[in-house]
Design a protein around this nucleic acid. Structure first.
Lengths: 345, 345
DNA sequence: TTAGATAACTGGAACGATCCAAGCGCCGGT
DNA sequence: ACCGGCGCTTGGATCGTTCCAGTTATCTAA
């Protein structure tokens, strides 16, 4: 349909009466080109509808500022909020981000990472899927591509693949303590698949506090989904075991439990107290509003962008493990707590 | 850190004792290379850790199978479900997908589309943000890049930028009729920003049926968010105007209304009847489960992949406007309807 | 026996940018 | 009058692939 091929810098150069090198310098905003020349070249570019050919440039340059973001579950708002923040922050520093979704599938993840390496990403930020991932990370190591593990640790080589994650342990400790302070006595830990690093960490904080207080732990692990949370609430209701509060693996589970409580007629925050984890935007907008462990998702995105930019620009690998602080966002679902100031919106 | 540069096909060729052309042919799975040679080359590739350099290839080929997907709101599950399905479907056909988020910002959208063109995408699938988009689409037109408008029509040139969208009109007609059949008499249309194509279309179906039945229309347009839905429910309750049902702009608004109803003590499906639109996964998992207009998001993703693949491979542009069928997923929020079989899960 | 077809492989010329060393005026200082 | 430096511009080499027009060697048909 389009007979004429795309114009190149050579076409622009001819038309402007300069050399292709000059055009290239203009593209790179080099200070060593005269202002009038720059303006002329720019004008000609607009006239002929020149578009930059990144593939050609990237082939010559070892390092074109392309950064890959691998997300394991685009359906979880936590990850999309993170992706949004990261992408904006990287854009400010002049990097382009490509996003891909692995849907928690390690095979797909392997493909996706391979494809990104082929596209010549200079670094990778990866929220890894669990499973057989050694080969995937090995490919990154062999290619000498800087890669950050975000939010979850899947590969043990923290020196090669540093981890940035919220301080889950402190978060679940604080959440559990808060439920106790609010008056709950039989508190369950609900959701999260057994054996996974994040689940174990969040569970550990819960168990620690429960132990300190001499209470009995109640563990209900399972998928981190709304459906599981809803079923868990129904089950707790049916068993009449006196459970009166839940520290949830994440906000999705917590929101599921809220639905389940509505269904069985419990009043959340009164008959039953719920703490979420992650503090996604939706938490402030449901009824009742959801108390949660606020992880400053956007802040983590900014920090990840900063870390990877410094890694690329100064060549210095970040520390093996970075934990970002968390705080509680206390709202309605955990009930009124004597002597505690609710924070969050 | 990595002193040796990446191996190229030339390194592989030397090591395998063949020419670079042969290696290239192996990469392309050409049938005109002997089976043993192919195996040999493959083995050497694995040995030296060869990775394909897409930038170099793409520079030579006009058309590398890279497809850009531009999404206006990654936080809306509707779009992420669509993205997931599309990406998988394209992967099956050998295309790679790059996703970018515009956050409903036409300026960001312009940047993002520009960046994708620079990266040499051979086609674009775009869920466009509203606003000043003419320049953006013009850049696509000038570059002769096939682009599909998905779910929303923003640019009028349907011959250049065909539209694929669900049959919103039929959907809102059916939704309104169902609420009437379920016994609601004062039905509001809630959410969606005034003046936007999708809002107008969904509203039109509602108005049509309301008019036919001789009922009074009640329009409450606004942001398509949970927060707006919640506020709308509160307001309806406060006004005591006898409104007993709502056709919502989308599921997010509907879920917000469900929250609002819980808050004011209304029983959804009984005191107040709600129909959503889109039928996101969450609709089946809240309490009460949400009746909605099912748009077969995954199916649309598959169809989009197919359309764009055929466009690229046969060079034949698809029809200007494609409407995909919708059906109702009747669940609890719209209440029991005499003589109607609930469908959906 | 030989011409022609076929199968398997090869060398060089693209592709469109970046980078480098060099070139060209022009000015000021000796 | 000459040299060095500075500001701006330039031609050619280069990156790693694909594509095209050969070049063998082997096979088939007359």
């Amino acid at each position: 349909m389009n007979v004429t091929r795309r114009p190149t810098i050579i076409d622009v150069a001819h038309r402007a009466g300069v050399s292709k090198s000059t055009v290239s310098l203009v593209l790179q905003n080099s200070p060593s080109v005269r202002e009038e020349t720059r303006a002329l070249v720019r004008r000609v570019m607009a006239e002929v509808g020149y578009v930059y050919n990144r593939a050609a440039a990237q082939m010559r340059m070892s390092n074109g500022g392309l950064i890959g973001l691998v997300i394991n579950d685009l359906r979880n708002p936590f990850f999309t909020e993170f992706a949004t923040s990261l992408q904006m922050s990287l854009a400010e520093r002049g990097y382009t981000t490509v996003i891909a979704n692995t849907d928690e599938n390690p095979v797909l993840q392997h493909q996706v990472v391979g494809s990104m390496i082929e596209h010549g990403v200079s670094a990778l930020i990866i929220c890894p899927a669990y499973g057989d991932t050694f080969a995937t990370f090995d490919a990154l190591a062999r290619g000498g591509i800087p890669a950050l593990q975000m939010l979850r640790q899947v590969d043990g080589r923290l020196d090669l693949f540093p981890l940035i994650a919220p301080d889950y342990l402190a978060g679940s400790r604080a959440a559990t303590r808060h439920l106790i302070a609010a008056g709950a006595r039989r508190i369950a830990f609900v959701g999260g698949l057994e054996g996974r690093a994040v689940t174990e960490e969040r569970k550990a904080g819960y168990l620690e506090v429960i132990g300190q207080e001499g209470l009995a732990p109640i563990i209900m692990t399972g998928k981190a989904s709304r459906a599981f949370g809803r079923d868990a609430a129904r089950q707790i209701f049916a068993e009449k075991s006196g459970v009166d509060g839940a520290v949830c693996f994440n906000d999705l589970v917590a929101l599921g439990m809220v639905s389940g409580c509505h269904e069985v007629g419990w009043r959340v925050g009164d008959d039953f107290r719920i703490m979420g984890f992650d503090d996604i935007e939706e938490a402030a907008q449901t009824y009742p509003t959801l108390s949660s462990v606020h992880c400053d998702i956007a802040g983590i995105g900014v920090r990840a962008a900063q870390t990877v930019a410094e890694w690329l620009e100064n060549g210095v690998a970040p520390a093996g493990e970075t934990r970002t602080p968390v705080r509680l966002s206390l709202r309605q679902s955990s009930g009124p707590a004597a002597g505690l100031q609710p924070s969050g919106d």
